[in-house]
Nucleic acid binder design. Structure first.
Length: 503
DNA sequence: AAATCCCGCCAAACT
DNA sequence: AGTTTGGCGGGATTT
């Protein structure tokens, strides 16, 4: 339910780009549509439809399609509006994050592959690259119960990181969900840091891998038995792996227990990106990169091929773009990722995704396969003041969380931090905190929601927000009534604990 | 001819 | 054993 409503908010202004339009149609699967027979070809020759075009099956294009596909089901909205919502509904984030979880938010790998008209193998390629730069699409498919347990048991800080900054958390079964670009800034930041450290030789570089609390997948019966709690980390996979990388200097070495396949596409991607993040030059040709990434080895043919794969995906995200090296005719790639490159790390900055204009829904619908050069001329230093507005989602959320907590704790406060979508009007809020009975809580939340209702200049935004408020209310009341199975697993106390977890 | 890079076999890694 | 991931390289397409 609610699917239709949300979709209505999507701009979807039919562009006049006839050329692209065609592709777009194909890229956006309509609901009733089932298969996508397009290229159903058996192995060998491609008799039918000689319209076969290699380009139409490029990873890059596929990638953008994937994005649009995922976005289609509400998730698109979630991805972009998440920050907005959290500004006011910080405490509701869990709800937002899992909103419509079951059918819309996630898509089965097989289904996706089918709709895109490709083999699942390709999906893996894309996902791997995306994940390595923080655009995670792999999401734990936590059940409501599991998630709530999660919230109840861990510090809210962790929860927020978990929800927003998620950098590749995997472990799910064939299920993907689009989370957005929220994790990108952080991911890049970390990559850079790591890269610099490596460069300077020393530094043992701590293992990364955000702990992923893998909860059961099926709702029932997943007691958290272990009293201790926490320490659910579980590094998963590689105990060590990810060596300090092998630059030209040290080729064959490590290998404790076979460096497994840590020559994976994902790792390669990260290293590739690191090149851009550290290096002063901002363009590089693939074979050049291949050399750097793989100590001049002699097994490069393959490596280059992989780089092409990566480049395609990154390119479709506008993280990178291909250009002709001025001097030599050789094509090379240029990093577009982070706007300014002020080394000052204290700075927020890092305009995230689509360098598009306003609401970055640019590539939302798989269109724009041509990355028409945005007006991002030379060093676009047009972001001095914007910095504040384009902080990473994580940053926003953090602030958000703080302010909300504050507000929950005390009366109102003036320092509410707004994100990119500045509400026009002011907001008043005077929810009398104080946790009364459960029933009252419902009231409180409702009033809270009401008073927090922002006044967006943008009509669509306002509607959307309203929609969510509505959804939340309905969900909450239903829940409060106990009709929800969740109640069986834990009573109000738990929920409240999570809602008012400001202790 | 050189640059790209899709396709899908088949082996690890997980159930 | 069955399934899900995802190296890897042949060789088709593009440039």
């Amino acid at each position: 339910m609610a699917t239709a409503v949300v979709m209505a908010a999507v701009p979807s202004s039919s562009p006049a780009d006839a050329a692209e339009a065609v592709v777009m149609t194909e890229a956006v699967p309509s609901l009733p549509q089932r298969q996508q027979p397009v290229f159903v070809e058996g192995r060998g020759g491609k008799l039918r439809d000689h319209a076969y075009s290699r380009k139409q099956k490029s990873l890059g294009l596929l990638c953008s399609k994937w994005g649009s596909l995922v976005h289609l089901g509400d998730s698109w909205i979630l991805a972009f509006w998440f920050p907005v919502l959290t500004e006011f509904f910080c405490a509701f984030s869990s709800f937002v994050a899992l909103y419509n979880r079951d059918d819309v938010e996630s898509i089965g790998l097989d289904d996706a592959a089918r709709r895109l008209g490709v083999e699942r193998r390709r999906i893996y390629d894309i996902v791997n690259v995306l994940e390595s730069v923080g655009v995670s699409s792999f999401f734990l498919r936590l059940s409501w119960t599991g998630f709530l347990f999660f919230l109840a048991r861990f510090d809210s800080d962790i929860c927020f990181r978990f929800i927003c900054e998620k950098i590749l958390v995997r472990k799910a079964k064939n299920r993907y969900s689009w989370i957005g670009f929220g994790g990108v800034p952080m991911a890049l930041r970390e990559l850079k840091e790591r890269a610099l450290r490596e460069k300077s030789g020393l530094a043992p570089l701590p293992v990364e891998e955000p702990s992923a609390a893998i909860m059961s997948d099926d709702e029932d019966e997943d007691k958290m038995g272990d009293a201790d709690g926490d320490t659910e980390s579980e590094k998963l996979s590689q105990p060590v792996d990810n060596p300090s990388d092998n630059k030209p200097g040290a080729p064959r070495c490590r290998l404790r227990s076979d460096h497994r396949k840590e020559k994976s596409l994902g790792l390669l991607t990260q290293n590739f990106v690191k090149l851009f993040l550290t290096m002063e030059v901002d363009t590089i040709s693939l074979d050049e990169a291949a050399k750097l990434l793989l100590g001049e080895g002699h097994a490069e043919n393959t490596k280059v091929r992989r780089l092409y794969d990566i480049a395609n995906v990154l390119s479709s995200l506008n993280f990178i773009d291909k250009i002709q090296q001025a001097d030599s005719r050789k094509p090379a790639f240029r990093w577009l990722g982070s706007a300014g490159k002020p080394k000052a790390e204290n700075g927020v900055t890092i305009a995230v995704p689509p360098p598009g204009k306003t609401i970055s829904n640019k590539r939302a619908f798989g269109t724009e396969l041509t990355n028409i050069d945005i007006n991002r001329s030379r060093l676009d230093s047009t972001i001095p003041k914007k910095a504040k507005l384009t902080q990473s989602g994580g940053e926003i959320l953090k602030n958000c969380k703080l302010s909300v907590q504050k507000q929950l704790g005390q009366g109102s406060k003036g320092g509410f931090v707004y994100g990119p979508f500045h509400p026009a009007g002011a907001r008043k809020q005077e929810l009398d905190n104080g946790n009364k009975g459960h029933t009252d809580n419902v009231q409180n939340w409702e009033s809270l929601a009401a008073s927090f209702r922002p006044q967006y200049q943008n009509q669509a935004l306002g509607d959307l927000f309203a929609h969510y408020v509505e959804a939340w209310k309905s969900w909450y009341s239903e829940f409060a009534q106990g009709s929800s199975m969740m109640q069986q697993h834990f009573g109000m106390p738990v929920i409240n604990q999570f809602l008012y977890s400001n202790h």
